[in-house]
Computed example of a mutant assay.
Amino acid sequence: MSGHSKWANIKHKKGKADAQKGKIFTKLGREIVVASRACGGDVNNFRLKIAIENAKANNVPNENIQRAIQKGTGGAEGSTYEELRYEGYGPGGVAVMIDILTDNRNRTAGEVRHIFSKNGGNMGETGCVGWMFQDKGQLTIPRDGLKLSEDDLMMIALEAGADDLEADAEEFVIYTSPEAMEGVSKAFEEQNIVVSESVLSPVAQNTIEITDAEQARKLVHLMETLEDHDDTQGVYSNFELSEELADQEF
């Protein structure tokens, strides 16, 4: 993947837009609410544990985290969120999936459909692109402060059950099966390796290289607009930018 940029890398290079816009606390809080509801507030549950860890990594105050857990377990009033996944196509037929947490599915569906159509894409039926993706655990480790070599990190990851490791100038991303994610996370914890983000999300099994600058601009704008929607928890696609476009600003 050297010289190329997938959407996750593009988003990272552009900075944490959600944090800049004050939305990340809301998104992380919703994930804690839903995870807490599913497990009854058991903080040893892996989904809730990583939701809390991600919130702490993004400096969400402890009182916000506790309030979200209470909402999830019925200890505080709050909206009832529904988990949804929308699928569709971006400019040029690129596959796009969006994970949603909403308290009004009709409103959200209409708004997401409008974003697709306004940005050169179209929202599809459930399953239209889902077959192109596979759920993977993704553990992000910053290079800054890491005392291990890449080879040593890879060895720890593989011995713990990881599938693959990708690297760029700023961080490593370790990919695991959903079943192995917790074990790999614990292995890093035992080695005092800082994991800045832990997510379980769809990863494209094959990617499409984008070489046209105008198509790249349209795709990035579509993805950013979907990311900015208040109900969005994650946006995924199967495109990557060519080496010539990888470092361009869009």
Rank of each mutant, 00 (worst) to 15 (best):
Q205C: 10
Q205L: 11
N206P: 00
N206A: 09
T207D: 08
T207K: 06
I208V: 13
I208Y: 07
E209Q: 04
E209K: 08
E209W: 02
I210N: 03
I210H: 02
I210G: 06
T211G: 02
T211Y: 05
D212I: 06
A213I: 03
A213C: 00
E214M: 11
E214S: 13
Q215A: 06
Q215L: 03
A216D: 01
A216M: 03
R217P: 00
K218Q: 15
K218L: 07
K218N: 07
K218F: 00
V220Y: 00
H221Y: 02
H221D: 12
H221N: 13
L222I: 07
M223S: 04
M223I: 06
M223V: 00
E224F: 03
E224I: 00
T225I: 09
T225R: 11
T225E: 15
L226D: 06
E227P: 01
E227H: 05
E227G: 02
D228V: 11
D228G: 12
H229E: 13
H229G: 04
H229I: 05
D230A: 08
D230I: 14
D230E: 14
D230S: 15
D230K: 10
D230P: 02
D231F: 04
D231V: 10
D231Y: 04
T232R: 08
T232C: 12
T232Y: 09
Q233L: 15
Q233W: 07
Q233Y: 01
Q233F: 01
G234F: 09
G234H: 12
G234V: 02
V235G: 12
V235Y: 11
Y236A: 07
Y236I: 09
S237V: 14
S237M: 10
S237E: 07
N238A: 08
N238E: 03
F239M: 12
E240C: 12
E240T: 11
L241S: 02
L241I: 06
L241R: 12
L241D: 05
S242W: 07
S242N: 12
S242R: 08
S242F: 10
E243G: 03
E244S: 14
E244R: 13
E244Y: 05
E244N: 14
L245W: 05
L245H: 06
L245C: 04
L245E: 06
A246I: 12
A246H: 06
A246P: 06
D247Q: 13
D247K: 13
D247Y: 08
Q248L: 14
Q248H: 11
E249I: 01
E249G: 09
F250V: 05
F250S: 14
